[in-house]
């Protein structure tokens, strides 16, 4: 269990580091794609360990636990969002926050139609 967790932690920290370096490199105070880099590191190290025959249930369980904890974390996140101030920050925030989202769903639909014309 702890081996998988340590592997996840390694990939997470390395990925966040890359995101922070990329942010500094671009001259902005933000993490650029840290989660994405970490995911790629995890996928690559899983492939490497599997090809060496070192991957086993020990690793899998530590990762699976956090994978499953993901939805509860999202629930906790939703409960700790500042919903009240978002709803009371005025008509402009409500319009500028929802209207483009509705349009964006339309854009996703059109884009996916372009990519998969058979559907």
């Amino acid at each position: 269990m702890i081996k998988g967790l340590a592997l996840l932690a390694t990939c997470f920290l390395l990925g966040m580091w890359c995101g922070a370096i990329l942010g500094t490199w671009l001259g902005i105070d933000a993490n650029v794609g840290g989660v994405g880099f970490a995911m790629v590191f995890l996928l690559l190290s899983k492939e490497y360990l599997t090809s060496k025959g070192w991957w086993n249930g020990e690793f899998g369980f530590g990762l699976e636990f956090w994978n499953k904890l993901y939805i509860p974390i999202v629930i906790a996140m939703a409960a700790s969002l500042n919903v009240k101030s978002a709803l009371s920050s005025g008509v402009l925030a409500l319009l500028a926050g929802t209207f483009p989202v509705l349009l964006a769903f339309g854009v996703v639909k059109i884009l996916l139609k372009q990519v998969n014309p058979e559907k």
Binding site: M16, M39, L63, A76
Partner: peptide, 15 residues
């Protein structure tokens, strides 16, 4: 629900 656990769990879903 903070960003640390959220990002950590998202990375775990990559498996």
């Amino acid at each position: 629900g903070g960003s640390m656990f959220r990002d950590f769990a998202i990375v775990a879903t990559a498996t």
